[in-house]
Write a protein that binds this DNA or RNA. Structure first.
Lengths: 147, 147
DNA sequence: TATTGTTATACTCTATAACTATA
DNA sequence: TATAGTTATAGAGTATAACAATA
């Protein structure tokens, strides 16, 4: 091994290729899944984030990695479909609390069920033991990034 | 184990969660990477597909999972930026052959280098042996789907 | 002054439907 | 008739900049 840092550490080309391909495959399937439930992928993500909590526009923007203005429109469109509500924040009159409506919770439940089926089918070629190994490896990657 | 088929085989919830989270993380990073290179993710994907071959609009649409009309506009925008060219197809006057320009090849090279760094950093918490295991598991999932 | 959310604007991506040129 | 590509149209997603209300 070189003693110099490797600015372009190409790593394992096969792994890079596989990670990218799996990411595209999973995202593609998730997008189709959301569309089947008459949602955009971003809307599904947002409803998922709100499943067990209430967030402000700014907090949502941070969690989704989007600009506040993007989230403002996203919430407006999702609210028009009756999946979320905007409530006044008693603690700060400038901000808005976004919550999931009962209808949104139903949509999320349906989406999550489908997602489970989908990802289960993706990992179907693996043995239960290998699935556990895969989960462990992925989780270690995520933990390291604070996810 | 039950003798009945499981219509909603929830599989391993931890694995499902991890797969989704990794897919979002990878896609997010790839999107930012493309943006840094002044490209959309779709444009980067397309240029990548054309790296070592020439494809028609219809073939591109199939490879990208998009409608031909979407690809038509995509190619037009990408051509405006000088990254691809449209050439007549001598074998069939109806169709168009899309190729990467030298400028597109440069952009792709830069993008791929960054992508290598990026995914290498994502898998950095894993030992080389674990990276090999991860690549093997992912590849088995992909092979099973004909990817 | 700083922050929260919204709006105006502009662009990309995507699909459906209708069209043309060619096969 | 069937296929390849384009165009018109529409809607979602996204960002930047400017703004009003509140802190």
């Amino acid at each position: 091994m070189s003693t110099e840092p490797s600015p372009s550490a190409e790593g394992d080309p096969a792994l890079i290729e596989a990670l990218g391909a799996v990411a595209f495959a999973v995202m593609g399937e998730l997008t189709k899944l959301a569309a089947r439930n008459d949602l955009s992928l971003t809307q599904l993500r947002m409803v998922g984030l709100l499943r067990d909590r209430t967030l402000t526009i700014t907090e949502l923007a941070h969690a989704l990695g989007l600009d506040r203005s993007s989230v403002s429109g996203l919430v407006a469109r999702t609210e028009e479909r009756g999946l979320v509500h905007r409530l006044p924040n008693a603690a700060d009159a400038r901000s808005v609390l976004v919550t999931v409506s009962p209808q949104g919770a139903d949509a999320l439940r349906a989406g999550l069920t489908e997602m489970g089926d989908l990802l289960a089918s993706l990992t179907e070629p693996l043995s239960p033991a290998d699935r556990g190994r895969l989960a462990g490896l992925l989780e270690r990657m995520l933990e390291h990034r604070g996810l």
